[in-house]
Design a protein around this nucleic acid. Structure first.
Lengths: 115, 115
DNA sequence: CAGCATCCTGCGAGATACTG
DNA sequence: CAGTATCTCGCAGGATGCTG
């Protein structure tokens, strides 16, 4: 059956740069995954440790989409005990400043909600 | 029936500042709505014009959540022809720099995908 | 004008179990 | 270790129509 990847969800929001970028961060975990890849490549189970509560299914899904979107690269490091490293591509690096600002705003929000 | 608002979606991603902030931008239109409120207060139908393709239902939902989250303020401007103005709160202003960076990254992405 | 009501689709996510 | 399979739930969003 023809799979209808018609982009029905998130379909015709204005094609401006903001929507373009936000689209990459869809999903509750996506931004955090990119954040933990900032400093070094990480393996699947390392990322699962970084993100307490994520299921392997969701992590695999997010990583797969990030790879499709060209933000994350996949490298099979070893094969005897299977080991796969995920790292940021150039595009993934480009998006990091945006995440940094989101973190700063998030901390402001946190402080505000405490007071 | 007891409505189970258990926050099942987006529930226990690490409670870090990044997740906190990303939570406010959930939804395809949210970031754009905030963006169009940046320079001046806007009325409902003005926003609908700003965001070609959005339905009034979705716009009303997003505005309501933004109001709950404390990012947007609602002001009944006139009552004879009902007119309601939406504007950014201080918190809504705080998040603007993050959106600005997302726009810049989005433009980089756009340029990259053209070449 | 500024929405709300209703019905429907598709995706993100959780839980659990299983595999090479 | 790095996933896949199956099931269920809830939300974002579209379409259409209606209201004060």
């Amino acid at each position: 059956m023809l799979k209808r990847r018609l982009n029905r969800v998130l379909p015709p929001p204005p094609g401006c740069a903001l929507s373009l970028c936000v689209r990459y961060l869809r999903g509750a975990w996506t931004a955090n995954i990119l954040w933990y890849l900032k400093h070094q490549p990480r393996r699947f189970s390392e990322l699962r440790g970084d993100l307490p509560g994520i299921s392997s299914k969701v992590l695999a899904q997010r990583l797969r989409r990030l790879e499709e979107d060209g933000l994350v690269a996949r490298l099979r490091a070893r094969s005897s005990p299977v080991s796969i490293e995920y790292s940021l591509t150039d595009l993934g690096l480009d998006i990091q400043p945006a995440l940094a600002v989101l973190v700063i705003v998030g901390e402001k929000i946190k402080r505000r909600s405490l007071s």
